[in-house]
Design a protein around this nucleic acid. Structure first.
Length: 427
RNA sequence: GUGGGCGUAGCUCAGUCGGUUAGAGCGCCAGGUUGUGGCCCUGGAGGUCGCCGGUUCAAUUCCGGUCGCUCACCCCA
């Protein structure tokens, strides 16, 4: 056992692991491309202020941060959105809107690892910038759903829980929450599933400093929170109606795209990050065994705050760790075929020059070719060929070479035939 | 940062009520097989029993600490 191990929460990718990673990346890129997104990237190391300044206090606590040799406070990027905001902000004037960009950054976070959550992961990020209408929200959510469908996951496997901070905010204001307390109240009701009603009431009273009557009304909002109830209760309320209309627009678009069955309205989805402003959603596995597979939403004010460029924006992130667990759990990761097309066998060392020449010609033609790197018995070479899963062996012995031929053996059937070495490049 | 569980071969795990050279299966290497693979047989390599300390004549075993893994909390990409 080596005395060197990976740092806690970091992963080695052995070939079979990297094959899975590539499988995931390939599909991510494929779906992003189908939706017209262009790939970009930024530096993995950023100035600390990029995260401490504006992202909300939650994210700054667990950064991989240090001082570099130039005495700069830096951090390994924990998320991509600030980098994206900077990049777009710097060139926004010259870019046609809406901007559709995606990225596959490796992100870092200094915290104790647990299931589905390491100190490092790769995350698909899709963002649309410069479009305020709900059509963009529908497009983004559809892309996220199609990403999972590209892995052969179905509505039996996952569901999108959709909410709207705008709606929730309007409801809270309607029920008497002061505007200055909204953010605090969001953070408290985000725990709706995990904390007792008594605890929530206490926090709403003490941390959000709400009147007792308002506390009750805030929690009552969640009593009947299915879409029909919310709509019938508040559609006539002036301050709330526009948000209801927006969500209605999202749902009807999802329906028109044939994705209604993946979408569930759920008012309790708030998202922890402070910068979300509108429709927010999370993708969960249908069995509820894993943490969220993906999450995203609107952050219409972030670009203005980070880059000074006032553009509406929305995006989502999907990590590779939870997705990988889900795919393994559902047996949806295919065996990757990285086997040689040819394994070349030299009967005696005399055939080595011919073998090398043949190998190079086959390789030049795009074939995957291997052969033993030391002199071995024919039996041994065949063992190797079988062990690496070669489709065919090509046997070069004194007789064959003298005749300018080779014996080709199909490893699955054992069928053999002779082949002219001259014609090899055509094989 | 807090709490629970677990650390024996590359992997999955036995085992040791404290006692001499710590085992199995799989995998790996070699041979049986110097012109043909998968099966089979034989042999081999590979372990400071996570690390440090304590108790003891003796610790892989008991105790403490520590590190790591893991699950949950906190928090959330």
């Amino acid at each position: 056992m080596s005395s060197y191990q990976t740092l806690p929460g970091f992963r080695d990718f052995y070939p079979e692991d990297l094959a899975v990673r590539r499988f995931i990346f390939d599909r991510w890129r494929e779906v992003a491309g189908r939706y017209g997104f262009q790939e970009y990237d930024g530096p993995p190391l950023e100035p600390l202020e990029l995260y401490t300044d504006k992202s909300g206090p939650e994210i700054v606590k667990q950064l991989y941060a240090f001082t570099d040799k130039g005495n700069r406070e830096v951090a390994l990027r924990p998320e991509m959105t600030p980098t994206l905001a900077r990049m777009v902000g710097a060139h926004a004037g010259g870019m046609r809107k809406p901007i559709r960009w995606f990225s596959l950054p490796q992100l870092f976070r200094y915290e104790r690892q647990q299931r589905g959550r390491l100190r490092e992961h790769f995350q698909l990020n899709l963002d649309i910038i410069g479009e305020a209408g709900v059509a963009a929200d529908a497009e983004l959510l559809a892309a996220a759903i199609d990403v999972l469908r590209a892995f052969d996951l179905t509505d039996q496997d996952f569901v999108a829980r959709v909410s709207d901070r705008g709606l929730l905010g309007a409801l809270f204001l309607h029920e008497g929450v002061p505007e200055s307390r909204l953010e605090v109240v969001f953070n408290i009701v985000d725990k709706l599933e995990r904390e007792s009603r008594e605890e929530l009431e206490r926090r709403l009273r003490e941390e959000a400093e709400l009147e007792p009557a308002v506390v009750g009304r805030v929690l009552d909002v969640f009593e009947e929170r299915d879409w029909e109830s919310i709509r019938s209760r508040y559609a006539g309320t002036e301050a709330v109606a526009p948000r209801i209309e927006a969500l209605e627009g999202l749902f009807s678009r999802m329906d028109a795209m044939g994705m209604a069955r993946f979408v569930r309205f759920d008012l309790s989805v708030v998202r922890g990050l402070a910068y979300y402003t509108g429709i927010v959603w999370e993708l969960f596995d249908a069995r509820g065994e894993l943490r969220a597979i993906a999450g995203g939403g609107r952050y219409d004010t972030l670009l203005e705050r980070l880059s000074g460029t006032d553009l509406p924006a929305l995006g989502f992130g999907m990590g590779d760790v939870v997705l990988r667990e889900l795919l393994i759990d559902r047996a949806l990761i295919p065996e990757v075929e990285e086997v040689p097309d040819y394994y070349l066998v030299a009967v005696t060392p005399d055939q080595q020059p011919t073998l090398l020449s043949v190998a190079q010609r086959l390789r030049a033609d795009g074939n995957r070719v291997e052969y033993a790197l030391r002199d071995q018995s024919v039996g041994k070479q065949f063992k190797n060929a079988a062990a690496v899963g070669a489709r065919r062996t090509l046997v070069l012995g004194p007789d064959e070479v003298a005749a300018g031929e080779a014996v080709v053996r199909e490893m699955s059937s054992g069928e053999e035939s002779r082949l002219s070495l001259d014609g090899l490049a055509l094989a």
